[in-house]
Write a protein that binds this DNA or RNA. Structure first.
Lengths: 127, 127
DNA sequence: CGGTGATTACGAATCGTTTCGTACAAAGAT
DNA sequence: ATCTTTGTACGAAACGATTCGTAATCACCG
């Protein structure tokens, strides 16, 4: 099952913060977001995700603790593949060129990417 | 205004085929798609897009001819932004690292990307 | 003419997602 | 014991996007 946009936002929290309660996630969402998201809204979404198998939950204590089932890297790769296929005709490099071309990437990030490329060139790596 | 998923599909037809009638687009959609899409569905969508300014139309003859207003490149950028936000927490560089990290990018492409980065680093570009 | 087919316009049904109100249960404090 | 707080469950409203039925209009053909 493929996560919706809202579910993806929650997955991101779980990925970056690790196993979390609904309250944790909800607070995290409201830190950044402009519009207040109700607690039960987050709860419901996470319950739905649990039903879909996107997250697992530990219900042994009263306040359930949720964890992402899909590892971040795997989910991102799948989504990336699909996205590149449908909107860049399968060419990752065209996509990358466009992504970097908007001038919003910091020098540090550029340097990091460059380093990765050099690395890839060096050993003809395949994952 | 940001195109929806369905609108994007139509835009892609207009980009690749150039100015088209509703029937043209609808037929194109039904060639590839598994599920038959009704003519008036396509029509309605294109009318909405016209209202939003995503497409323009020549109504001088009875069968209107629609053209994409948004250039492909700009749309891709918007899409990219959305995608990066929802699945990479807004970090384009993390996305790029993931994209290149799957070992499917050819040496030529890597070189090209590297060249772009060098270029960006050189003149502190801001689009 | 009158009929047939193609076209636009538009309201409304439908569908999936998100949001939240409300009910109820558990745990701790006094 | 009861009050308060914090939690889950769940139905349903709200919302946006998509889909389509239907009416009106136009153009062509006999």
């Amino acid at each position: 099952m493929q996560p919706t946009e809202g579910e993806l936002v929650i997955l991101q929290v779980l990925w970056s913060a690790g196993p979390s309660t609904v309250r944790d996630v909800n607070e995290r969402l409201n830190e950044s977001s402009s519009k207040e998201i109700g607690y039960t809204t987050t709860l419901k979404l996470m319950q739905l995700m649990s039903g879909k198998g996107l997250v697992s939950r530990d219900t042994s204590s009263r306040t359930h603790v949720y964890s992402a089932v899909l590892p971040e890297e795997k989910a991102q790769k799948t989504l990336l593949r699909r996205f590149v296929d449908t909107t860049f005709g399968g060419s990752a490099s065209r996509m990358v060129l466009r992504a970097l071309g908007d001038g919003k990437t910091s020098p540090e990030e550029l340097a990091e990417i460059k380093k990765l490329i050099t690395q890839l060139e060096k050993d003809g790596n395949n994952d």
